[in-house]
Amino acid sequence: MISIPESEAAAVVGVGETAALAEPRLWRRALRSLAHDPVALLSVLFILLLVVVALFAPWIAPHNPLEQFPNGLSDVGAPVAPGARFWLGTDQAGRDVLSRLIYGARVSLLVGVVATGLASAIGVVVGTVAGYAGGIVDSVLMRVTDTVLSFPILLFCIALIAVTGPSTRNVVLVIAFAYWTYLARVVRSQVLSLKEREFVNAARTLGVRHATIVRRHVLPHLWPTIIVYGTLGIATSILIEASLSFLGIGVPLPQASWGEMISEGQQYFQTAPWLLVAPGVALILTVLAFNLAGDWLTDLMDPAEREGGR
């Protein structure tokens, strides 16, 4: 069984002399490395689970997350502990914690993915233009980047939200606006070195247009960086969103969000610890999963390994 792929690999090496095989087998390489890396496998599975839960929240959640159940509060008006009816208990308003957690995953993933996507788009454009054009364009773009980068990211987001007002859309925009600088920096340095590669020179010598060179010979080499930084960026964005919601300036009430749940839950921590534990654990696991998956992708896409000694 296992000997088949091995003999196949040997045959390819024999023909090609160099063993560094690039792109076309990335998927297979990813699956193979997951099989040997249980931590990465768990992270990826957890992320997949999270995506499924977020996508199908209305079908998966046992209750309406906003409904205040009459039997959701005890006789003295305290939250109900986890049990058969409310698996993770209820909160101070008699709402089902599990359902709120599931709908909160939607907010976290949505904000994380969209904000990171926007930030990556800005970062790649700025970094590529700065690195490829060089000179005065580079100087101007990088001074702007450094200026944004010099603010502590959370403080910067809080200040921006104070100006724009809290809403889900603004939270996404603000995180994207604060986070693009990281990718811009990394992409610029990559483009600077790509620009000096002989195959880029060869394309220039042929008379290929700059725009075509960037599209054909520069951007494809940036994908590993974008994917790795994107994955880590999602973790950061989720944390920032939770922090903003915790401070009450994130996703507006009564929409469920993990940060908001932690914020509310801490007031009842001594009598109803599940209010804090459930969203806290969800947040920790999610951020951890994205970070670990990011590390795994970094190893998988290591350019030195992929491009044969470069």
Binding site: A22, E23, R197, E198, F199, N201, A202, A203, R204, T205, L206, G207, R209, R216, H217, P220, H221, R306, E307, G308, G309, R310
Partner: peptide
């Protein structure tokens, strides 16, 4: 310049760097 470029070509020293590994 682009029009004239193709009249003069170059073969580079490093055969591992002069071809785009993704093409």
């Amino acid at each position: 310049l682009r029009r004239y470029r193709r009249r003069m070509q170059m073969v580079y020293q490093d055969p591992y760097d002069s071809l785009d590994p993704r093409m």
